[in-house]
Amino acid sequence: MRITCPFCGERELGEFTYLGDAKPVRPAPGASQDEVYDYVYLRDNVAGAMEENWYHGGGCRAWLRVTRNTLTHEISSVEPAAGAGARQVVK
C-alpha cells in the first residue's frame, strides 16, 4: 500500500503510522460521562470508505486525513489534517 502525502508525494506504507478513525471529536470540557466514554472507547467497525488519521513520521512529519476503503485498501483522498501547516501542497 502507498499513500500520496500532499506535501511529499507518493510514499511507501513504512513511512506512515496509523492512528485510527478521524471522525471522533473530543467532547467539550463539561460533557457528560457517556459522551466522553463514547469518544474514548466506542468505534464504528466500518466496512467500506473510512476517514482515518495517518502520521507521515518517516517523511515530513505532518498529520494526514486519509479516506481509505477498509475492504479494498483503495485510497480516495489524502488531505492535511487540521493544523498540519499547509501553506502549499504539492500538485
Binding site: C8, E15, G58, G59, C60
Partner: peptide
C-alpha cells in the same frame, strides 16, 4: 524528507 533503513 524520507526514511532510509528505518531512519529519518
Amino acid at each position: 524528507a524520507t526514511s532510509m533503513d528505518h531512519t529519518s
